[in-house]
């Protein structure tokens, strides 16, 4: 099929797709979500988990297993990227250091980003945010210095260490409840007062593990791409 033919065909099919998807979506009850499960969770979450942020309660409590999978996917992607890039032509990288401004800003930003990331992780059960968002900020904290001075690459083994321990911690927290005869990932520790920093039982611990894992994984992943990506 030649280029124009395919473009035309694509556009036609796309137009059809748009029209049909629109028809499909319009048939859904917009603004009147059935909330079959959602409503029940909203009413029960504070009591059952002690987290003020119900999304967090879902992420770590009701659907904590999803979150484990989610963390795993980042880990898989990082491992796979490491595997794929392991043979890439590192070595002839353009290792031009960043300018003065970038370097100075990187040094300056680093502590702020770390603190901000930590804050977001630790308050994940109270306010918007959590392990993923905080982890991403943490990753940025370590990634920006790398952009500033590419010659001093990230210490991958430390990152891997943090990654491994954080991932293990998540599962060990989950397994801990198994040992007490509860189901996997059942929250434990006291639920505390709704809205307090030290509340919601083991949920913040999970978020901490997630934060560390996401942070180290993202930083490692991006660092790897930067390390080999200079050439192309």
């Amino acid at each position: 099929m030649h280029g124009y033919g395919r473009t035309t065909a694509s556009l036609l099919f796309l137009a059809g797709l748009v029209v049909m998807l629109y028809a499909l979506f319009q048939a859904l009850p917009f603004g009147a979500a059935p909330m079959q499960v959602g409503q029940e969770i909203v009413s029960r979450a504070p009591g059952e988990t002690g987290a003020a942020n119900i999304v967090t309660a879902i992420l770590l409590g009701y659907r904590g297993f999803d979150t484990l999978g989610e963390v795993t996917i980042l880990f898989v992607a990082a491992t796979a990227a490491g595997l794929i890039l392991s043979g890439a032509g590192a070595g002839d990288l353009p290792k031009a250091p960043g300018g003065f401004i970038l370097k100075a800003a990187a040094d300056l930003l680093f502590p702020f980003l770390v603190v901000l990331g930590a804050y977001i992780i630790l308050h994940g059960h109270l306010t918007p945010g959590g392990g993923f968002q905080g982890g991403a900020i943490m990753a940025a904290a370590f990634f920006i210095p790398l952009l500033a001075s590419p010659t001093s690459p990230l210490n991958h083994s430390t990152a891997a260490l943090v990654e491994g321990f954080a991932g293990t911690a998540f599962i060990v927290i989950g397994l801990a409840s198994l040992m007490w005869g509860e189901a996997f990932l059942t929250p434990f520790l006291g639920k505390g007062t709704l809205g307090d920093l030290f509340s919601a039982g083991s949920l913040p611990l999970l978020y901490l593990a997630i934060g560390l894992k996401v942070g180290s994984e993202l930083a490692g992943l991006m660092a790897r791409i930067v390390e080999v990506g200079g050439k192309s």
């Binding site: 099929m1 395919r6 065909a9 694509s10 099919f13 796309l14 059809g16 797709l17 049909m20 998807l21 028809a23 499909l24």
Partner: peptide, 21 residues
């Protein structure tokens, strides 16, 4: 052997939705 594999997916989804409709 066709290079643009997502194209099939587009066609399949479009035709499938047409069939559904």
């Amino acid at each position: 052997r066709f290079a643009h594999t997502p194209f099939y997916l587009l066609v399949a989804v479009s035709l499938g939705l047409l069939w559904v409709g």
